Simulated assay, not measured.
Amino acid sequence: MVPAAFIALPAFPLTPNGKIDRNALPEPDYALDDSTYIAPGTPIETIMAGVWAELLGLDKVGRDDNFFALGGHSLLALKVTSLLQDRADIHVPVRLVFETKTLAELCSKIHGTDTLDDIQDLKTKAMEFLDHGQEAQLRPLIDEIIEKQRDYLQHWSGHRLKPDSLIVSLNETRPGPGLFWCLQGHNELSQLAAHLEMPVHGMRSGHMVMEYTSENVSAIAARYVAEMTAIQPAGDFIVGGNCQGGVIAREIAAQLQNLGRKISVLFLMEQSDFPPYREYVSLIFGQESFLNPYVADADPDVVFREAYRAGYSVDIISGGHGQFFESPNIESLTSVIKKQIRAISQSAGSNISISR
């Protein structure tokens, strides 16, 4: 048996007769280290994390966590498989719990979670599973964010897939791929749609709605991902975001990748942080913006090459921060978007097409 936890002690506590005083030994602390926590990225991971958290008495479980390192043992491993079967009708051989090193690896071995129908079914099960155990703590967080968003979105004009949808679409009847863009206001959405001959799906950022914690960003991104896959059940995605919206757009892209969906291009506009991303990125900065990294003697490409090893481009457009959705800056921005989409559509292996 491998110990579930290790505790360093300066010395063993002893009884008066010199034996180890087991009652005086400290309890293992299985609390997660937030600095290494990575939230579940797929519906099956959400379900699995909920099961582990409930059985292990933890507030949250990450996709890179090990069941036994968190305090699990053989009896609880059996309970994992039983609970998955009872709650979500998912069959997991108990041997997989022992053979895999992380929650993500375990979930990748489970059959029947890879087709579009499977994924849609798992999304429903994942949301239902939030009603059970420790994962129920996430539901008030998600509901609170969504409720605040609706206060801002109630006056946004455009097409909604359902009356309670958060994504608002313009040009939805136009041919070609849709652009999913995370932005702050309806004016930004209407300006993009007016200058792009393609469907534009607006996703409001968390401005004035939430703090930009990893949990909140993951929660709002998960809601957008669910709506995006319903709007576009097949094909490659084109995703982008400006300012705060870029942070959410990056998380949306990562969650879509974890669902097995491809992102043809991710537009990140006016960003100050550049965490690694495993597909192509189009970076956009304003010429007069304080976020323009190409100042005297600076070489931001050193950072970009390390973060975006699959490839990236940089475009400098006219305007300063907060001025990009007015003329002539909006024309400069949309010309970059058109150029990138055209280049991607003409590249080998692309699963998007555009009308000219």
Score class of each variant (00 low, 15 high):
Thr81Met: 14
Ile20Gln: 07
Gly202Phe: 01
Ala307Met: 07
Asp59Asn: 13
Thr213His: 06
Pro140Ala: 11
His73Ile: 08
Glu105Asp: 15
Ala219Trp: 08
Asp131Cys: 05
Asp131Glu: 14
Phe67Ile: 10
Phe67Trp: 11
Phe180Val: 04
His186Gln: 15
Leu32Met: 03
Ile7Glu: 12
Gly322Lys: 15
Phe285Glu: 07
Gln244Met: 12
Gln120Pro: 01
Pro10Tyr: 05
Pro13Gln: 09
Glu128Gln: 14
Tyr294Phe: 15
Ala39Trp: 04
Val61Arg: 03
Asp89Arg: 10
Thr173Gln: 15
Gly235Lys: 10
Gln134Pro: 07
Gly50Gln: 07
Phe304Ala: 09
Asp33Pro: 05
Gly349Ser: 07
Cys107Gln: 08
Leu196Asn: 04
Lys109Asp: 05
Lys123Arg: 15
Gly206Met: 02
Asp143Trp: 08
Phe290His: 14
Leu259Asp: 07
Ser350His: 07
Trp181Ala: 05
Ile110Phe: 06
Phe274Arg: 00
Glu251Pro: 00
Gly241Asn: 05
Met210Asp: 00
Leu75Gln: 10
Phe98Gly: 08
Gly62Trp: 01
Arg95Ile: 12
Thr334Gly: 06
Gly72Gln: 04
Gln257Ile: 11
Ile316Ala: 06
His155Trp: 10
Tyr152Cys: 02
Ile316Met: 12
Ser318Pro: 06
Tyr152Lys: 10
Asn23Leu: 14
Leu333Val: 15
His201Val: 00
Tyr152His: 14
Ile167Lys: 02
Leu192Val: 06
Val247Ala: 10
Ile316Ser: 04
Arg95Glu: 15
Pro328Asn: 11
His321Arg: 09
Ala49Gln: 00
Phe325Ile: 06
Glu279Trp: 05
Phe12Met: 15
Lys125Trp: 10
Gln287Met: 08
Ala249Gln: 07
Gly349His: 02
Thr81Asn: 11
Thr213Trp: 03
His91Met: 10
Gln255Glu: 13
Glu215His: 12
Met228Cys: 13
Gly206Glu: 00
Phe67Val: 08
Leu161Arg: 13
Ser190Tyr: 01
Ala69Arg: 10
Lys148Met: 03
Pro140Ile: 08
Phe324Trp: 15
Met269Leu: 13
Glu251Thr: 11
Val97Lys: 04
Ser35Ile: 03
Ile7Lys: 08
Tyr152Phe: 15
Ile145Asp: 00
Gly245Gln: 09
Thr36Glu: 14
Pro26Thr: 07
Gly50Tyr: 00
Asn242Gly: 14
Ser205Ala: 15
Gly235Trp: 06
Asn23Phe: 06
Val80Cys: 07
Ala24Asn: 12
Phe6Pro: 02
Ile352Trp: 08
Tyr294Val: 11
Lys338Phe: 03
Ser327Arg: 12
Lys148Phe: 03
Ile110Tyr: 06
Trp181Asp: 02
Val200Gly: 01
Asp29Arg: 11
Tyr224Ile: 05
Val265Ile: 15
Gly286His: 09
Pro93Asp: 13
Arg204Glu: 00
Glu54Ser: 13
Asp315Gly: 04
Val80Trp: 04
